[in-house]
């Protein structure tokens, strides 16, 4: 089944829309779903032109395609466990929150908290994402625990905060404090990052580009030969965060 949702023009286009109902499994029961626009509950068809093609008997046979102005639509794919969501443009905050299976493809940019506390599945973002990608909710002790997030552009601050499992790959650069409070998992950053991995206790972070302002509480372990993305690289290996009695590994490409 292929469900196409094309955003209708809205009188107040800046108003946030909360649309956690947009997950493949919900469309098995039809399209009579609701979302919130500001403080008003709306039927899905009030905000989207809906087209449904073909049958499906299980969520993994459902593909949802979002088109049009969806940059303010939040929580798409929240608690998704199977199927596929393709977003042709930008997407709002919390896309893929808590998802445990299936795939989300974002062809442009994603707002903050992409894949927050994700458990499994895969998110691919062809553009960039904002702050707290793969992170935890405020005060939460663990962020993403499983699955894969791949960002072809850059990310904002606190990418992979509280990362506890799974893999976050950012091909571009990150803002401040990527991998802060990491407890496990793998964070790979292709470009530049500032002050990575503060307070990390476990897990591995790899920086293929340059580190601005390496934190003073990482202990240098020497140079290792490592293979990343099929390339053999010499990498400086650091362990920390010593301030937190941490045993995480931070690998930085030599000479970057």
């Amino acid at each position: 089944m292929r469900v196409t949702l094309v955003a209708r023009p809205r009188a107040k286009p800046s108003l946030p829309v909360e649309a956690e109902s947009i997950i493949p499994q919900n469309f098995l029961r039809g399209t009579d779903l609701t979302v919130y626009e500001g403080n008003k509950e709306r039927r899905l068809e009030e905000l989207f032109f809906i087209t449904v093609e073909g049958p499906a008997v299980s969520p993994d046979q459902v593909e949802v395609v979002l088109m049009g102005a969806t940059g303010r639509v939040k929580r798409v794919g929240e608690y998704m466990n199977a199927g596929r969501i393709v977003i042709e443009g930008d997407i709002g905050m919390h896309c893929g929150n808590f998802m445990s299976g299936g795939e989300i493809v974002i062809k442009s940019n994603a707002d903050a908290w992409l894949g927050r506390e994700m458990r499994g599945g895969r998110i691919t973002c062809m553009g960039s994402t904002s702050h707290n990608c793969g992170a935890g909710y405020r005060g939460e002790k663990r962020g993403m625990r499983g699955g894969t997030i791949e960002i072809f552009g850059g990310a904002g601050d606190f990418a992979g905060e509280y990362l506890a499992g799974g893999e976050v790959r950012i091909h571009g650069s990150c803002g401040d404090m990527a991998g802060i409070e990491m407890r496990g998992g793998l964070l790979v950053i292709g470009g530049t990052v500032t002050r990575p991995c503060g307070n990390m206790t476990a897990g591995t972070a790899v920086v293929l580009g340059h580190v601005n302002r390496m934190l003073p509480t990482f202990q240098y372990q020497g140079v290792n030969d490592e293979v990343w993305d099929g390339k053999r690289l010499k990498m400086d290996v650091w362990e920390g965060d010593v301030a937190n009695r941490g045993k995480g590994r931070l690998l930085v490409a030599v000479g970057k």
Binding site: R195, G198, N199, R213, L215, P216, T217, F218, Q219, D241, V242, A243, N244, R245
Partner: peptide, 17 residues
């Protein structure tokens, strides 16, 4: 942030790093 991290390490006896 860096200063606070350094102080934490020093207080717990890890000024060597």
């Amino acid at each position: 942030y860096e200063i606070l991290s350094a102080l934490r390490a020093i207080v717990r006896g890890r000024e060597d790093v």
